[in-house]
């Protein structure tokens, strides 16, 4: 399998990348690690006229701690998170998620921003960072803007990003010392795309949020997920799964409900 012909340009700065994207009138794709786009190109599911390589832009590789948490540049790799190069401000959550993404050779190249922009429903970061209420930092011809990740991902492989905008990084809030999390994903083989993902975050002061991932749509947030952990209302899980769009298929329904229950059990443990 060989990719269709495309041109390639390496951007030296965010401005240069935005200029290249603007000039290409929607026929370019941004590439960072290329671990999702590479297969798409080889399978000819994507046939852009131009690849704009942003991997070497210094600012996109930076990790900056703030009082509220951390700003992680788009081109930070999964392996960097796995190896602890990103300071642990999520009580081990991001490290655990990173270590479970695909395979080490993929994690060495694949980036957090690339994964978010690819917005594969079975991707780990769209689910994990939605759970953390992360904010997407965007730059385009109109300047800088930001929006919650929950808003940013609009559907399978779809985001709010305009063709001339790039995701600069993610602002991720720090978890409180008493916060607890769980992340359970079901794959038929380690490293495979997940069939179902369940993630729960208890902030330690009563608020409890969950995300249903690897559905056929954007990650589905359950804002008040106490019923999952307390196992107080089994009917509500059914309606949450229905709202996540998995009710049409008995297998999907079964696997997602089991994954959510296991995530709840993990949190309680």
């Amino acid at each position: 399998m060989k990719a269709a012909a495309f041109d390639y340009a390496r951007a030296g700065s965010i401005t240069a990348a935005v200029d290249l994207l603007s000039a290409s009138e929607g026929r370019a794709k941004v590439i960072a690690g290329g671990q999702s786009l590479g297969p798409m190109l080889n399978l000819r599911l994507a046939q852009p006229a131009l690849l704009v390589d942003i991997r070497h832009i210094r600012e996109l590789n930076e990790i900056r701690q703030t009082e509220e948490g951390c700003i992680v540049g788009s081109c930070v790799t999964h392996a960097a998170v796995e190896d602890g190069e990103v300071p642990d401000f999520t009580r081990g959550f991001m490290k655990k998620v990173a270590a479970g993404i695909a395979y080490r050779a993929v994690r060495n190249r694949g980036t957090i921003g690339g994964s978010v922009c690819h917005a594969d429903p079975a991707g780990d970061w769209v689910v994990a960072l939605t759970l953390l209420s992360a904010v997407a930092l965007i730059e385009g011809p109109g300047g800088r803007s930001e929006m919650s990740l929950q808003e940013f991902v609009t559907g399978p492989f779809s985001t709010q990003l305009d063709p001339a905008q790039i995701l600069v990084g993610m602002r991720i809030p720090r978890l409180a010392a008493q916060a607890r999390w769980s992340y359970y994903k079901f794959c038929r083989k380690p490293g495979e795309f997940a069939d179902a993902i369940g993630a729960i975050l208890h902030d330690g002061s009563g608020a409890c949020r969950a995300v249903i991932g690897a559905t056929s749509g954007a990650p589905r947030v359950i804002e008040d997920a106490r019923f999952l952990v307390e196992r107080s209302d089994p009917g509500r899980m059914g309606s949450a799964l229905e709202a996540a769009g998995v009710a049409h298929d008995p297998y999907e329904m079964q696997i997602h409900s089991v994954v959510l229950k296991r995530a709840a059990a993990q949190l309680a443990a």
Binding site: Q35, P39, N42, L51, A105
Partner: peptide, 8 residues
């Protein structure tokens, strides 16, 4: 280690 088939 990296996958050379999906790296240009």
């Amino acid at each position: 280690p990296a996958r050379s088939c999906i790296t240009w």
